[in-house]
Nucleic acid binder design. Structure first.
Lengths: 154, 154
DNA sequence: TATAATAATTAGGTATACTAACTATTAGTT
DNA sequence: AACTAATAGTTAGTATACCTAATTATTATA
């Protein structure tokens, strides 16, 4: 494959790497990675479960557990999430949104998510799906490769 | 547009954000951002010019000048680039690869670039071009938007 | 000549995520 | 039952990748 195309792809990926700042509302009270944690918490929380385990959050967000701990600490200090301990296994902690956190997510809907939606409307549904499909393909290839190389830790 | 699709896109973008580490060779002697600087330096260097100005590098890599300064300092200390001063304007500094830096770029070709190429071959030329096209569309939309919001500095 | 603009740097700080080592608890083995 | 393994989470310390504000040196302009 052509050298130029390879380089174009690198440039493309580089340009996308810091996408969060494009959508970020500067006045937002929490950091981007904290917002992501809340979003995934909000989304992956079913009615029947009390909260999500830090280790699960780490898998969803592809972050190591100590990283999750410090994010949850920060969010807990600010009052957006709370930790409750699991009765069945006292090693386990469950993280869930507080009301304050839930309200913040409504704000996220109106700023971050709205901006993403706007962008998607510009590029169109078809291209959006294509983008998701192709990147998914890239990721699945790379994840398999990573597993073969080093046992899957990343 | 559907909430789910928006969320899928976020997830997709999140997964791509740290793409560099997928291709990274752990034994490589320089950091990822340093490697990027060298790659763009290598690529944007014509035969007729002595080097590239830090300010130009900043535009290409979308980094602020102080960031470039510290990258160039580090690379210069390690012997991969050198600074030469412009005769026409003594405020200006030109950065160029040393032989050592040039040799390192050959290594980059054989590791980082080779891995990217491999991935591209897996996903196929057509999808690669689609990916580049769609992300380009996203970026152009967002860059215009960013300019409208805050005068274009980022 | 004085002032403004430009190029790069210095100093200091923030955000993000890591590894290694530790504590507490549970599961499995003898 | 006691001992050892494994597992969940945390703490402490570190690396990386950026940034802003202020400073220095030089050139352009009024």
């Amino acid at each position: 494959m052509h050298q130029d195309l390879v380089f174009d792809l690198v440039e493309t990926l580089e340009g996308l790497r810091r996408y969060r700042r494009w959508f970020r509302d500067e006045s937002f009270p929490i950091r981007n990675n904290e917002m992501m944690l809340l979003m995934f918490l909000d989304r992956n929380l079913n009615d029947d479960c009390l909260g999500i385990r830090p280790s699960e959050l780490g898998e969803i967000l592809r972050l190591k557990r100590p990283t999750i701990t410090s994010l949850v600490n920060s969010l807990e200090n600010q009052g957006y999430v709370e930790r409750i301990s699991d009765d069945h296994d006292r090693r386990v902690v469950l993280v869930r949104l507080t009301n304050k956190g839930d309200n913040l997510m409504d704000q996220v809907q109106q700023s971050f998510i709205r901006q993403i939606r706007q962008t998607m409307e510009y590029i169109g549904e078809e291209d959006t799906r294509e983008l998701i499909r192709i990147i998914g393909k890239v990721r699945s290839f790379l994840e398999v490769k990573a597993q073969n190389n080093d046992g899957g830790s990343w």
